[in-house]
Amino acid sequence: MKMLFKGSEAIAEAAIRAGCRLYFGYPITPQSELTEYMSRRLPEVGGTFLQAESEVATVNMMYGASCTGKRVMTSTSSPGFSLMMEGISYMAGGELPAVFVNVVRGGPGLGDIQPAQSDYFQATKGGGHGDYRMIVLAPHTIQEAVDLMNLAFDLADKYRMLVTILADGMLGQMMEPVEFPPMRDPNDVPEKDWALTGAKGRPPRKVTSFHIDPYELEKMNLRYQATYKKVEENEVRYEELNTDGADIIVAAYGTMARIVKTVIHMAEKEGIKVGLFRPITLWPFPYKRLNELADTVDTILTVEMSYGQMLEDVRLGVNGKAKTPFYGRSAGVVPTPTEVLDAVKKAIGR
């Protein structure tokens, strides 16, 4: 049955249904509803909710919980995500699985609390120190966000990696009808042969991102890199709409992509065929498919709620084979369909 759900709350419920019973978090707009939902709902299902003293503590509580092999998550918004970067780097080094939800708001600094996509670099290129990667999933509807939660936890466990759901204030605050997947048994997850469960009848296990010997640390890093390569080979996800025979392809993700879906209809009325290329995994980014598409069209316009961050990945994918103009508004200002349509027209000289 479909229920009308707020994005933040739907993501929370979906995480619980994915078998997550541990949530640590710190209130921050525009996602505090997610934190509040967890504080109500987790006790009902025998889970644990803890409001940490800061985002710095939050991510370290996740570190500790993840060490024990349990599914754990947090949610935050941009300034909070910045504070978590230290712990994220340590968790990546310790090969600890966990799920982060970043409901992005306008920045930099305190910024504002309106929707933005300006944490793209931070999520996909690092943010914390060291050669690490995070899987980054970008839902564009609440239903998709719900569906991706299961995937997020599964990918995190499968690859022993961190997964970030990169949403934005709009997805967090809006409501849509959603259908939830059935509840998964939190104990029904694959055995983790690295988890710290007590050294009973076996040698002690250690979780660490630390080695004083550079050659040993290099070995650890090469292991991380091998994992990242596997993810790049197997986990690229994207949606294509109308790209076949399009006059122009627009590359956009998340909320921006659904605005483009409206633009497709508007443009159709003016005789322009607009295609949409929507990366669902921002890391690993669908470079290969974008490169193929660049052979079929003259122009690939990138549209973002930021000032040209994903644009850099689009250009890497296109690799000079098509024109790659850009349109974006940021700082919490959401481009309207009309503005995007104007940018489309400008890009093709109409």
């Binding site: 707009t29 204030g169 709009m170 409501m175 009808p177």
Partner: peptide
């Protein structure tokens, strides 16, 4: 349907 609030 979608429902989108102004907030803040």
């Amino acid at each position: 349907v979608t429902w989108l609030p102004s907030y803040g």
